[in-house]
Design a protein around this nucleic acid. Structure first.
Lengths: 105, 105
DNA sequence: CAGATAGTCAAGTGGTTGCTTAAGTGTTCA
DNA sequence: TGAACACTTAAGCAACCACTTGACTATCTG
């Protein structure tokens, strides 16, 4: 999942799809690489559930699936907040216990 | 930066450091891999600013640097919210303009 | 000082990734 | 029907990644 977002091209695709669904060709057009390459990126994104694709006639339409974006977000928030909570606990400890020997002279 | 978080071992290290600073050895201990391997992960994490390390005597202490964690979080939030805003605008359009020909029968 | 400790450097390796080209497959339209 | 279109599949390749081992450098401890 972070693996999928690790690639700049894939992040560009996500950023594009956030503004609305698009076909494979539309996604490929600004991307300076061959169509099969784009397809492979789309497969990675779909495999981890970041996007959903559906083929109608000969055109495959891709749209974003924001729940998985939340999963990644939540992991980061969890790390950040537990770091902040640790700092809070440290503050409390330092406030309760006055310095005992010259650590803050 | 997402590249750095793409690796499970590196996420484990971040999750460990969030609970407080640790030495290279302490980080390596639960990790089923050689010390140099851990060092390489730490270099990746430090290169993208996710952690900061400092050597005192013969032990190097690593601590987390949560600002960069925020950067990643912000990118995700930006994508998610602009997707939600697009949905809102769509809702508005659909509410204003009554269906004209059989799209919602 | 000698030995143990904690980490570092360098080189190499096997597997994965991100691309490419070439040759299909199924759809649409004149 | 047949040519154009929008992908899709497969094979191959160069670069990168996560590791390893082995040798090395400081730093502490007895």
């Amino acid at each position: 999942m972070f693996q999928a977002l690790a690639d700049q091209t894939r992040r560009d695709i996500v950023a594009r799809l956030v503004r609305g669904p698009a076909s494979v060709g539309q996604l490929a057009h600004p991307l300076a690489m061959s169509l099969p390459a784009v397809m492979q990126h789309l497969q990675v994104l779909e495999a981890c559930g970041l996007i959903r694709t559906e083929k109608v006639g000969r055109v495959r339409t891709c749209r974003i699936e924001p729940q998985v974006l939340r999963t990644a977000e939540e992991w980061i928030v969890r790390q950040r907040t537990s770091w902040e909570q640790r700092l809070d606990r440290l503050d409390d400890l330092l406030a309760e216990q006055p310095p005992e020997h010259g650590s803050t002279p």
